[in-house]
């Protein structure tokens, strides 16, 4: 199989894995597990951008992070153990779903405070630029945030600093149209995010966030620019939060016509249709892929549920270094 086709396949499978993972968490929530903020509908953003990064790069993300983590190679079983509060989770159960980081994967400093990720990312990029710690030459940082964070003042502070200090930082705005329970068109002009970014004087690209190939191509261009110049770049990915702000959320406030329109443009569906049109996959092939990820998730769930709870005597571990 040509490399291009292998990559297209891999993107589809990774998106399916993210979706299956999120659906499993939704199921778990219905039976009493903690609620999560799913990334259903935004898988192409995570897969396309993360594929454009390499091992020396760092990722700073937020509460809607499962896609970024899985695309980076995080094991669903350890993610699920974390969500369930078990010792085998990436953070030993202290994070739960909201602030999972995995230093071993370069997924650092996840903040669930909207805007917190933007406040820390320039510092991680500064350390990369200065060759501090275990950073490697040429390493960059990708920070994932949403249109909600773009309404925080820290958005402009981070962009301004990254430009003035020429930090190797890729801003990835997953514009999923929703800011908690408010549609973004209530809080900002339609084309605001990219326009605001352009005002800071860095390269800005806006692409269809549900087209994984387009996302990857744009991310690869942005990463190449950052590595070549040392300075930042900005990517706005138009996408849609298909589920609620968190689980459970009846989404009664969502315009069903809008939701339906975006479901027609579901990223996994689009990639499946693309591969089908190219003759690379058929219905049976798709079903086999889906079965494979479902098995992975089922195994992950078994692992997570078998994982031990932390003992109460560890409550105060890791408060201080």
């Amino acid at each position: 199989m040509p490399e291009e086709n292998r990559a297209a396949f891999h993107r589809l499978e990774t998106m399916l894995l993210i979706r299956a993972y999120e659906h499993q968490l939704v199921e778990l929530q219905r039976t009493g597990a903690p609620g999560t903020c799913t990334s259903v509908g935004q898988e192409a953003c995570a897969v396309g951008v993360v594929e454009a990064l390499d091992a020396r790069d760092r990722i700073v993300t937020n509460h809607r992070s499962a896609g970024h983590l899985i695309a980076r190679g995080a094991e669903p079983r350890r993610l699920m153990a974390e969500v369930l509060g078990r010792v085998d989770g990436y953070c030993g159960g202290r994070s739960g779903s909201l602030h999972i980081s995995a230093k071993e994967l370069g997924v650092v400093l996840t903040s669930t405070i909207v805007g917190g990720e933007l406040s820390m990312a320039p510092g991680v990029a500064l350390a990369q630029k200065m060759g501090a710690g275990n950073s490697e030459p040429g390493g960059i940082v990708a920070v994932f945030f949403g249109d909600g964070a773009a309404c925080e003042g820290i958005f402009h502070e981070a962009l301004n600093l990254a430009v003035q200090w020429q930090l190797p930082l890729l801003f990835v705005c997953e514009n999923n149209q929703w800011q908690a329970f408010v549609h973004r068109l209530e809080t900002m002009p339609d084309k605001a995010i990219s326009a605001w970014a352009r005002g800071h004087g860095l390269p800005v690209d806006s692409v269809d966030g549900n087209d994984v190939d387009a996302v990857h191509a744009a991310a690869a261009r942005a990463v190449a620019h950052i590595r070549a110049t040392g300075g930042p770049a900005f990517l706005e990915l138009s996408t849609y939060r298909q589920r609620g702000h968190y689980e459970p959320d009846d989404q009664a406030y969502v315009d069903s016509a809008e939701l339906q329109a975006w479901l027609q443009r579901d990223p996994i569906r689009m990639q499946g249709e693309r591969l089908t049109a190219k003759g690379l996959i058929d219905a049976a092939g798709l079903a086999a892929l889906e079965l494979r990820v479902r098995e992975t998730i089922a195994t992950a769930l078994d692992f997570a549920q078998a994982s031990a709870w932390p003992t109460p005597d560890t409550l105060l571990e890791h408060v201080y270094a």
Binding site: M120, L126, N134
Partner: peptide, 14 residues
């Protein structure tokens, strides 16, 4: 952003 940058830098070896 000054404080946030310090936090990010501190976690990254500075």
């Amino acid at each position: 952003i000054v404080a946030g940058t310090a936090v990010g830098a501190a976690a990254s070896g500075l």
